[in-house]
Every structure is written in C-alpha cells, then in structure tokens.
C-alpha cells in the first residue's frame, strides 16, 4: 500500500543535524548504540512477558531462561479454564469498535464545525470542549457511577460504551485535520452551490481527512481496549468483563501464578501490537504533528 509511495518531502527538509555538529562523520556509532539500548528496553518487558507465558508455572520463579519455553499452549488452556477469556475478548471488541466508530464520526462533525463553520459562541464552546479534557476523567467516577446505576446499566456494556462515545481529544484532533487538509474555498463553493452541511462533509471533508480519521479510529480503539479503571468499577467480572478486567482477575488469586498472569497479559496485548505494527508510522506522525501544534 504505502511501499511505493515516497515519504513526504517535508520530513527531509525539516530534518537537520544537530547544531554545532561535527560533520556527519564516523563518531556516530554511539548514537545507534544508545538507541539500540532504548529500543531493547522498550521491547524487553513484552518479550519477557512472552517468555514467562511460555514457561512452566514452576519455572517462572527465580531466573527463568531467556528464551521462550514450550508451555504456551498449556498456559493458554489454563487461562481459558480460569476465566471466560473469549467472552471477554468479544466484549472488548464490541466496546472498542463502537467507541472508535462513534468517536470518529462525532469528532469529524464537530471538528469540521469548529474549523469551517461560523456560528455564535464557537470559540467559547471550543474552550469548553478543551476544558473537559483538562478535568481528569477518573475524578468524575462517583457521579458517573450513580448515573449509570440509576439507568440500570451496572454490569452492562452500555456503561463503558456510552460515556466514551465522544471525547475532547477526538474533536481537537479532527478540528486540526480539517484546518490542515480541507480547503475552505472548496467548502464555501460547495455551500454556495446549495450543498447541505451533510453533503459537504461527505463529499469534501471525509475524503480529505481520511488518513487522520484512520489514526484517530485506531487510537480510540486502543484506548478503549486498554481502559481499566472504569470497567473495573462498573462491569461485573463474571457477567460482562472486558479483557483488561479478566487479565487483572488472573492476578488477584491467592497464589501468584506468573505464567498464568502473563499468558493472559500477552494475549490481551496481541491486538494492540498488530494495530501498532500496521500503523506505527502514521501514529507517530499524528502524535508529533497533533500534540505539538497545540503548544506552538
């Protein structure tokens, strides 16, 4: 897909050697050595998780071998015996996909409105949206719990889906995407021709912001998949667990079984790794251009 496409030229022009840099000479091996060390430190815990997951439960104490053992399948079977893992995977998929799709749709509408439509109170409203991002979500859990249980949603997936359907991050992200990628003249022309806002969004905005929308979809999917605090509070560990909840359940037994715990952890991380490997470059660019711009 992107293999034959040349990288955007701006990366090259922005790129420059550090300052009073000695010419691009030999001495740079230590830069790579340091980066390799950082890279190894980034990957090691994941690799280690896999090593322990494939070891015999008894081996996992002390210093197990550095290479994976042959017990992964056994441990997997034990995970499935201990908790309802596949049910949790199904729940997590439902939650994360719904949240991701809803977020991208709503954020595209709101982002377009904030970037290209003029309406009274636009700036104030945008500040309110940003303000909600400054208020740590975890601190609203008490009233959120009371509302959710009044609605009879305790232990149901609605309880984790509905509050996450829209978020300030997505709106901020898509507003920026609309400002950068959508030509305002095209929007004006389309509106003069009598296009409704919906048609403008569908025919002008959506094609232009598709790459950013894809990254946002994946980022919201990941954060919904990884969420732990709120599902722990409001979901029932037996009737409606998500993956993170069952994985943490594996850790709460009386006896600490690392092979079991880390098999669950490894499995729960797999979809994350797949998404990350597929989209890593775009996520990196998105984070660098997205969050950085907010400050400058």
């Amino acid at each position: 897909m992107t293999v034959t496409t040349p990288r955007p030229a701006q990366h090259r022009t922005h790129r420059k050697p550090d300052a009073a840099d000695s010419p691009r000479g030999p001495l740079r091996w230590w830069v790579y050595a340091l980066l390799l060390a950082v890279g190894a430190a980034s990957i090691f815990p994941l690799y280690w998780s896999f090593v322990v997951a494939s070891s015999d439960g008894a081996d996992a104490s002390g210093l197990p071998s550095l290479i994976p053992g042959p017990h992964l399948m056994e441990n997997l079977a034990r995970v499935v015996d201990t908790v309802d893992f596949w049910f949790a995977v199904q729940n997590s998929l439902i939650v994360a996909s719904t949240v991701a799709v809803a977020n991208v749709t709503l954020s595209t509408f709101a982002g377009f409105a904030f970037a290209h439509l003029r309406f009274p109170g636009r700036n104030t409203l945008f500040l309110v949206v940003l303000g909600t991002a400054m208020v740590p979500a975890q601190l609203g859990v008490v009233p959120l719990y009371l509302v959710v249980s009044d609605l009879g949603w305790y232990g149901r997936l609605e309880a984790v889906i509905v509050p996450a359907l829209a978020g300030a991050f997505g709106v901020f992200w898509m507003r920026q995407a609309c400002e950068q990628a959508v030509d305002p003249d095209l929007v004006d022309a389309a509106r003069l021709d009598g296009c409704s806002v919906l048609r403008v969004i569908w025919h002008v905005v959506v094609p232009a912001v598709r790459p950013q929308a894809l990254v946002l979809t994946m980022l919201t999917f990941l954060s919904a998949w990884n969420d732990f605090f709120w599902p722990l509070i409001v979901l029932d560990p037996v009737r409606s667990p998500t993956v993170q909840v069952v994985v943490s359940e594996l850790a709460s037994g009386y006896f600490t079984d690392y092979a079991l715990m880390l098999t669950g952890a490894t499995l729960g991380v797999l979809p994350v790794l797949v998404i990350f490997v597929l989209l890593a470059r775009r996520i990196v660019t998105g984070i660098m251009h997205g969050a950085g711009q907010g400050v400058r």
Binding site: S42, W48, N226, F228, V247, G264, A265, G268, V269
Partner: peptide, 20 residues
C-alpha cells in the same frame, strides 16, 4: 515507532510484567 511502543501497550499488561 520503537520508542512509542511502550505507550500503546495496555497498562494492565505492563503492571503485571513489572510485577513479575
């Protein structure tokens, strides 16, 4: 991408690995 990897991994998994 390599340095960003730890940030996308589920915190639950991170906590369990470091717990070990």
């Amino acid at each position: 991408a390599g340095v960003l990897l730890p940030n996308v991994v589920s915190v639950v998994a991170v906590a369990l690995v470091f717990g070990q």
